[in-house]
Simulated scan of single mutants.
Amino acid sequence: MDGDELTAILEDAGLSPYQADAFVTLLGLGSASATDIAGASDVPDPRIYDVLRGLEEKGYIETYEQDSLHARAHDPADVLADLRSRANRFETAADEIEDRWSRPDLEEHKVSIVKRLDTVLTRADELIRAADNQVQIGLTPAQFRDLSDALTSAHESGVDVKICLFPEMATDPDIPSAEELASTCTEARYRTLPSPLVALIDRSWTCFSPHGDSTNEYGVIVNDRTHTYVFHWYFLTCLWEIHDSIYSARGDEPPITYVDLRQCLRDVEPLLKDGVTIEATVYGFETDTGREVTQRGTITDVTYTGHSTGEEQETPLFHLAGKASLTLATDDGTYTVGGWGAMLEDYEATRITIEALD
């Protein structure tokens, strides 16, 4: 390393340009008078005394009188320790910057990876209490009891709550009582196999953590409609569709409320085939503007990409996995109504209430 490079590094370490130049010069001279140091460096003669006193205060040199002011480099141990400490701090700072960049705070980004299940449960509790429309959640009985107060609060606020319970271990069928379920959810089902914790709130938030026997304990908290939509289909296919109901507050007489258009479509399709007039209110928003809307009218048709199975059998869920919509005739005109993620329809429905069947 040449003298100019060493001087530049010392400047980065906190010395002024004149101090760095004088110190590097003094290292080469060993000891010298102030005048000789000024002559061998680029430090102006009037500044040399102030520069040397500054270096002495920082511990780089020591001065002494010998007819005139002289200086010699201080024992470098302290200087070297300071430089190495600065290097370590820079390296630590670099690691911290990299760590903060790769694992950002939840408030600043849409996806957060956390290390503890408790963190996922705590965040799920907060989000469930703040829910406006729907909660879909798969969890163990122990986790159900951890979140029961939040689920009760959401249910009492009119939020549609669907719960899939599954055991911590395959041999543990500890199921909450009907009274507990009635106070916390709209409908509950039971899966006999252990599964990951997953909570979906208002089509926007997902809280996920793998099963307790997973190799690594971690959690994922997502604030994104697209990611949550993927988890929604995992919930439907793995935790809901194929499992038996253990509790339901739903009845067969209006008003009947749906937060899932596809379930609504399955129920109204046979009624339309029987010639029943279905009066409904659709709550949602316009797909092109995002403006919230409430429309009441008559459901006149259902459309989906799969083929009809006839009158004797409920349409399988996979037939509804593509485009699925209802047609609503109102006093203002006829509108197409899609479900979660609708793009081609006039409205994306967040809630549909069957008001009357005639």
Rank of each mutant, 00 (worst) to 15 (best):
A22V: 10
A22D: 09
A22S: 12
F23E: 02
F23Y: 15
F23K: 01
F23M: 05
F23A: 04
V24M: 15
V24N: 05
T25A: 11
T25W: 12
T25R: 04
L26N: 10
L26T: 10
L27R: 13
G28Y: 14
G28C: 07
G28F: 14
G28H: 14
G28L: 08
L29H: 14
L29V: 07
G30N: 11
S31M: 11
S31Y: 15
S31I: 04
A32M: 08
S33Y: 08
S33P: 00
S33I: 06
S33F: 08
A34P: 01
A34C: 05
T35W: 08
T35I: 09
T35C: 00
T35M: 04
D36C: 02
D36H: 10
D36K: 09
D36V: 09
I37R: 00
I37C: 06
I37N: 02
I37P: 00
A38R: 03
A38H: 02
A38P: 04
A38N: 03
G39C: 04
G39D: 13
A40V: 06
A40Q: 13
A40D: 12
A40F: 14
A40N: 09
A40S: 11
D42P: 00
D42M: 08
D42A: 14
V43L: 10
V43M: 06
V43S: 02
P44Y: 11
P44L: 10
P44E: 11
D45Y: 12
P46H: 12
P46W: 07
P46R: 12
R47P: 00
R47G: 03
R47Q: 14
R47C: 08
R47H: 13
I48N: 01
I48S: 03
I48E: 01
D50H: 14
V51G: 05
V51L: 07
V51N: 02
V51M: 07
L52W: 01
L52G: 01
R53Y: 15
R53V: 11
R53E: 14
G54D: 13
G54K: 00
G54L: 10
G54P: 02
L55F: 06
L55I: 03
L55M: 05
L55D: 01
L55Y: 02
E56G: 02
E56C: 03
E56Q: 15
E57Q: 11
E57A: 13
K58Q: 15
K58W: 09
K58D: 15
K58M: 15
K58L: 15
G59S: 03
G59C: 03
G59M: 05
G59W: 03
Y60K: 00
Y60L: 09
Y60D: 00
Y60E: 00
I61S: 00
E62G: 07
E62I: 06
E62T: 12
T63G: 01
T63H: 01
T63A: 01
T63V: 11
T63F: 01
T63Q: 04
Y64R: 04
E65L: 06
E65M: 05
Q66T: 08
Q66K: 13
Q66S: 14
Q66R: 13
Q66N: 13
D67E: 15
D67C: 01
S68R: 13
S68I: 07
L69V: 14
L69Y: 04
L69F: 07
L69R: 12
L69C: 04
H70D: 08
A71W: 01
A71V: 09
A71N: 05
A71T: 12
R72W: 13
R72P: 03
R72K: 15
R72Q: 15
A73C: 14
A73R: 09
A73L: 10
